[in-house]
Amino acid sequence: MKKLINNPDNVVEEMIEGYVKAHASSVKMLENKRSIVSTKPTIENKVGILIGGGSGHEPAFLGYIGEGMADGVAVGNIFASPPPSPILETTKAIDKGAGVVYLYGNYAGDVMNFGMAADLADMEGITVKSALTSDDVASAPLDEKEKRRGIAGEFFVFKTAGAAADKGYDIDGVVRIAELTNDNTRSMGVGLSPCYLPQTGEPSFELEDDEMELGLGHHGEPGIKKVPLGTADEVADELMTRIMDELAIEDEEVAVLVNGLGSTPQMDLYILFRRVEQILSEKGIKIYRSYVGDYITSLEMGGASITITKLNDELKELIDHPVDCPAFTQK
């Protein structure tokens, strides 16, 4: 394992320190050092958007606070949900009286910690509602969608729900948009090489040179099976078949995200996107917006995921809404 770090026990603190110094004009860290909030002005009575989860997914989640996305983030240890206290502190800092929506992926730890924080916020008189992302088709069958985990599709949920809050939707309206986006979003990924936790130095899984993990999650956890390494077109075909099987698309347009897991060259991601575009085009489906790059990663893992979101007119308007965050801008 080679990493540019100092002490493995301090990686999260030192990353946050660097991040808030690098973006000092638009974000600030709260006293507990695990809560970061946007300092950009917003509309009055804006519903607060709180995102979060473990570290190791950079630029998620801390990179997505700013105009048009989230107002604050709670940062956990590597691949571990943050505890309730920084979530509560962030909640208090971003509440403008209209309540706060928690957006996070469907993982047991996140559900418990964000749930406890929501109870604590409620005791302090702040209305909190939550919307969970569960876009990974490989993580459970469709009839057990409540068991599915959230992966790169979280980006689209942050995008549309963040836009809705920025446009003045009320708390129920923001939750409705987050849930609609999640319902219309499907993702799946492949892993080519493992990530290494700084504290153990061990690979998250082992693969032969000619193998890949199909359907893996973005914490280095193994996928549904090991399969022979395919070409970009074969991988795109396999992932797109599973994704498109579940999205009943008639004449709707879609948003596409080809997401790198950390150490995948942009070249590979664009080669994957090329095939995704061909598949959609053959089906007569129009791409409304495309995103290609490292949006939600898994340290230095090699591999990629494909996410497709079916858009209605309301979601199109929200996905077009401008964003200005340290890790993502859209005009």
Binding site: G76, A80, S81, P83, P84, M112
Partner: peptide, 12 residues
């Protein structure tokens, strides 16, 4: 314990 780890074992 909870404040240090979060995760799922923290709340448990």
């Amino acid at each position: 314990f909870l404040d240090a780890v979060g995760s799922s074992v923290g709340p448990l």
